[in-house]
Design a protein around this nucleic acid. Structure first.
Length: 669
RNA sequence: GCUGAUGUAGCUCAGUCGGUAGAGCGGCGCACUCGUAAUGCGCAGGUCGUCAGUUCGAUUCUGACCAUCAGCUCCA
């Protein structure tokens, strides 16, 4: 007897294993028609797969396009796409084709380089297969049989090796043995027609097993929905998201510029962008004063030996700008006929000195700490700097403000005793939370980055790592937010707590970070004198609540879609005189706004008021003062808010007082 | 770094089957003096990403390089 429990709590009992199709049919013909699969406990299954145990059952339908339905549809669409591609290019071999959050892809080894021009043909072929309405038929065999069947296909052989269990399944779209088929764990929709509407999105290279030393395959990205309407809505949403891209808005609003002549990944902050950055810096500086930080300044370069001590040289040579060497040394080496590779070797060995553009601020801050004898009474010492660092990121990775080669961290290093670590970590996390709350950024995830036990890139003793990882884990637990532990995501000197957000096209970016470090204090032999009059080693905490100003502002632009709250808006008020006769009054307003510390511009062009309003709206200026003869007469302004329209005529002094208050409160308005 | 695509005016883009280019917006000028998302007319602006090659002639064809975009890999 098999008992099936439905979502409403009702139960059904069967003598022989029922299928989802059968159960759906008993509930109602409409449901049976809409059903594309089932979910027993937490496992998706085919519509026609017998259920052999007592379980809960949710019937998955394509009427309700939830995550389960989309998973089935997209997993099945991947098969349809693979079949279509193999019809067009029969020599194509299939590697791996999983569903994704918003679609699916298939990694293929295809002699024909697929380009966008091929998409319509692939889609047309897919549409044919969908129209053919062929059933997805599952059949199974033993692992050994599967190996024998797939012995000529290295990708599928590899997939079998990675599969769990002794039973390997195949899905044919049609009659097994006669129709197209693929090795697959399933489950799938009952027939190709249920795949609905598909769209090929892009194609890119992808390494087999994600290993850059392995063969590169073609990865075709696509998406699928139950019907054309939902597909269209998704594609429209993608287009909308692109308009929020910080690279687009950054240009429109004159926030930043990246110039080929300056260099890849090197950001020029234009006046409007500089205002946003400065406001953010002012904001965090206030928090730092409150939390007892000390501001420091350090130069952009440091001698190689410093980074040899820290561990940056030689481990991170490939991700740094090459060192600078003084002119005399270069001349001397040139006279000796020293080749470049020899120069590199001699610098690495320490035989030749040079300066590195700093890839991190910590060594400089460490030297500030070490410049005086420190007592336990001095601790914790918190050194903060908006420090600009340079890293040689791979060219293919660079883009916009989110991944750059020169960036400014809102960096600080805390030197404290072992006992103070937990409290200091809490303070750092609090800071990040304040920032996110102030800016209304609630959609973030927290990652605790731990060391990868199999990697050799880390410095320091295992026992130090254990202590540091425990401290991070404990601090994360106090957050009140879910977090994931991710091995391999640690910094080379210690574990970290990262705050990660998504950009408009769904890419993850690390913003705030808090890192515990027992290792650099040891490498630099840092000390403080304890109450016992003995030297002790401090613990270091690295933290940057924004992460980098560049990346943070990039993400922030997209978060607000350029519609910044008043305190951050580059232009806070646009004064719009209705005719030239009010320009003098308008200029008067500008002076008064300036005196109140409000950033304002006047549109004294000879355009009509409608055009002036349109321009100010497009420039996303939060507040507009529309002033005509009546307002000038009465020392009033007609207030208009961006996106909200006319707010009515108000006395100037009242409006300015209200704006000042909103700005001072850093309100989200 | 790898795979693929792209690069024409400040921006968005059209165009040239090889004979040195055009629109809209923006800018400038003039007229209009206007009440909550586009007033009209005129003008200026381009070594068609860079450098080679083929050709009588290259923005167009070929190659290399640079940059941008997407993905992969990487990210102290």
């Amino acid at each position: 007897m098999i008992t099936i429990t439905l979502p409403d709590g009702s139960q059904k009992q069967y003598d022989t294993p029922p299928t989802v199709r059968q159960i759906a049919g008993e509930i109602g013909p409409g449901l049976a028609k809409a059903a594309i699969g089932g979910k027993i406990d937490n496992e998706l299954i085919d519509l026609d797969r017998p259920i052999t145990r007592d379980t809960t059952l949710k019937i998955v339908t394509d009427k309700n396009a939830d995550a389960d339905a989309l998973y089935l549809i997209r997993h099945s669409a991947a098969h349809v796409m693979a079949e279509a591609i193999q019809r067009l290019w029969p020599e194509t071999r299939l590697a791996y084709g999983p569903p994704l959050e918003n679609g699916f892809y298939y990694d293929i080894d295809c002699p024909h380089p697929i380009t966008e021009a091929d998409f319509p043909a692939i889609e047309a072929e897919m549409d044919k297969i969908i129209a053919e309405n062929r059933p997805f038929s599952r059949y199974e065999m033993s692992r050994d049989e599967a190996f024998a069947k797939m012995k000529d296909d290295p990708f599928k052989t590899d997939n079998i090796e990675r599969a769990d269990g002794d039973v390997i399944s195949f899905y044919a779209t049609g009659e097994p043995g006669k129709a197209w088929e693929d090795l697959c764990r399933g489950p799938h929709v009952p027939s190709t027609a249920r795949v609905g509407a598909v769209k090929i999105l892009s194609v890119a290279g992808a390494y087999w097993h994600g290993d850059a030393s392995k063969q590169q395959l073609q990865r075709v990205y696509a998406t699928a929905f139950p019907d054309k309407k939902q597909l269209k809505a998704y594609l429209a949403a993608l287009e909308e998201a692109k308009k929020r891209d910080h690279r687009v808005i950054g240009r429109q609003m004159g926030l930043f510029h990246i110039d080929e002549a300056v260099g890849q990944g090197l950001v020029l902050w234009k006046p409007n962008g500089a205002i946003i950055r400065q406001e953010l810096q002012n904001f965090i500086s206030e928090q730092l004063r409150r939390q007892g930080y000390s501001q420091v300044f350090t130069p952009h370069i440091g001698r190689l030996g410093l980074y040899r001590t820290s561990g940056h040289v030689p481990y991170y040579r490939d991700s740094q700008y090459p060192p600078l060497i003084d002119r005399e040394t270069i001349q001397k080496l040139s006279d000796e006929g020293c080749p470049c590779c020899e120069l590199a070797n001699r610098m690495e060995s320490g035989e030749i000195d040079g300066y590195l553009l700093k890839p991190m601020n910590c060594p400089h801050h460490i030297k500030i700490y070490a410049s005086e004898m420190r007592s336990y009474r001095d601790l914790p010492i918190r050194l903060a700097e908006f420090g600009t660092v340079y890293r040689w990121e791979q060219s293919g990775e660079i883009g916009g403000l989110t991944r750059v080669r020169g960036f400014t961290q809102d960096d600080a290093h805390l030197f404290c005793t072992e006992e103070q670590v937990a409290g200091e970590l809490m303070g750092c996390i609090e800071l990040v939370k304040i920032i996110f709350a102030t800016l209304g950024m609630n959609d973030y995830r927290v990652r605790v980055g731990l060391r990868d036990p199999d990697s050799s890139k880390y410095v320091g003793k295992p026992e130090n790592w254990d202590k540091a990882e425990a401290a991070c884990r404990n601090a994360a637990k106090t957050l009140g937010v879910n977090f994931s532990e991710e091995p391999g995501e640690a910094a080379f000197y210690g574990p970290k707590i990262d705050f990660v957000v998504k950009d408009v096209i769904g890419r993850d970016w690390q913003l705030g970070t808090v890192q515990v470090d027992y290792n650099l204090p040891e490498r630099f032999n840092l000390e403080y004198i304890g109450a016992d009059n003995q030297p002790h080693r401090p613990v270091m905490i690295h933290r940057a609540p924004f992460g980098s100003m560049e990346r943070f502002v990039g993400v922030l632009i997209e978060h607000f879609a350029g519609n910044f709250p008043l305190w951050l808006a580059p232009v806070q008020v646009a004064v719009l005189p209705i005719t030239e006769n009010q320009v003098a009054y308008g200029n008067d307003l500008i002076e008064k706004l300036k005196a109140a510390g409000i950033r304002a511009v006047i549109d004294d062009s000879s355009e009509k008021i409608g055009k002036k309003i349109r321009n100010a709206e497009l420039e996303k200026v939060p507040v507009m003062f529309v002033v005509g003869a009546k307002e000038a007469e009465a020392n009033q302004v007609a207030v208009r808010r961006h996106g909200k329209g006319d707010q009515g005529v108000q006395p100037l002094e009242d409006v300015i007082a209200a704006l000042k208050q909103t700005i001072a409160a850093r309100s989200m308005e």
